[in-house]
Simulated scan of single mutants.
Amino acid sequence: MARPRTFDEKQVLDAVQEQFWDAGYAATSLEDLMRVSGLGKGSLYAAFGDKRQLFFRVLRSYTDDRHGQLREALAETPRALDALRMLIEAPIDDPTGTGARRGCLMANSTCELGNADPEVLDHAHRSYETSTALIGDCVARAQREGDLPAAADPIALARALLAAQQGLVFMSRTGLDTAALTATARSLADQLLPDRSGD
């Protein structure tokens, strides 16, 4: 009879995610995974498979969580235009700057592994297409609310907004100071999302 698991699976996956996020895939060793999970090699492999399988389990969980958060944030903001501006300014919301400087686990993993691992690249493509579709729906809502030009292509604008947001995250990772990052974010928001409420 198989022995029941005596560990919290979510707690283990959260700890492993932090390790991959901080160190990257290549620099994370089996010993690192054993240390942060508190599991021995046999238990770790039996529960989650090898390092690559565990990494993809974490990556899928990460992107699912982020899409859920994005969907909720965009839907719950009363005015769609405000939700879209919030999306661009998200990297500067953390006053410590540590969140943005850590980057996005999906983007970090794509930069590290995308050229060598087609599965990572495919997952990244599907992940960003999902994000684009969610943002595009919010753009369409802003158009219906009269805050964005009706003739604008929602998906094209959504891609531009996502590119702007990810660019800000990257700039933050280079050590750009908070004041410059904030000014850049607001400039992008003003150019991509002109507020027409006073027209």
Results as ranks from 00 to 15, higher is better:
H123F: 12
S109L: 04
L74F: 11
D137F: 01
C104A: 05
V139A: 06
G114I: 08
V120P: 00
G136H: 06
D94A: 06
A73T: 12
N115V: 10
H125K: 14
G136Q: 09
T96D: 11
G68H: 08
G97H: 07
H123R: 11
L70S: 06
E129I: 07
D122K: 14
L81Q: 02
T96L: 11
C111L: 15
L105E: 08
L84F: 04
R71I: 02
A140M: 10
D82Q: 11
L81S: 01
C111Q: 13
P95M: 09
M86A: 14
M86V: 02
H125D: 12
E89I: 00
R101F: 03
G99Q: 07
H123L: 15
R126C: 06
T132Y: 03
L113P: 03
R126I: 03
R141E: 13
A133K: 13
M86H: 12
T96P: 02
V120S: 02
P95G: 08
Y128H: 14
A142L: 10
G103S: 04
I92E: 03
A80K: 00
T96V: 06
L81Y: 01
C104R: 00
V139K: 07
D94Y: 04
T130Y: 09
S109H: 02
R101A: 13
H67L: 13
E76I: 08
E72N: 11
D137L: 12
G136V: 05
M106A: 15
L113I: 09
D122E: 15
C104P: 01
S131F: 13
I135E: 01
A124Y: 15
A100R: 01
T110K: 04
T77H: 05
A83W: 00
T98K: 09
D122T: 15
G99R: 07
D122C: 10
R141H: 08
D64H: 12
E72S: 12
A75Q: 11
I88N: 00
L84G: 00
Y128C: 10
E112A: 06
T130N: 13
E76S: 15
M86Y: 05
T77S: 03
D93K: 13
R141P: 02
E89V: 05
E129H: 13
L87R: 02
A140F: 09
R85W: 02
R85C: 06
C138G: 06
M86Q: 14
I88H: 00
L84T: 01
E119L: 11
V120G: 02
A133L: 13
G97M: 08
S109F: 01
E72W: 14
D93W: 07
S109N: 07
S131E: 15
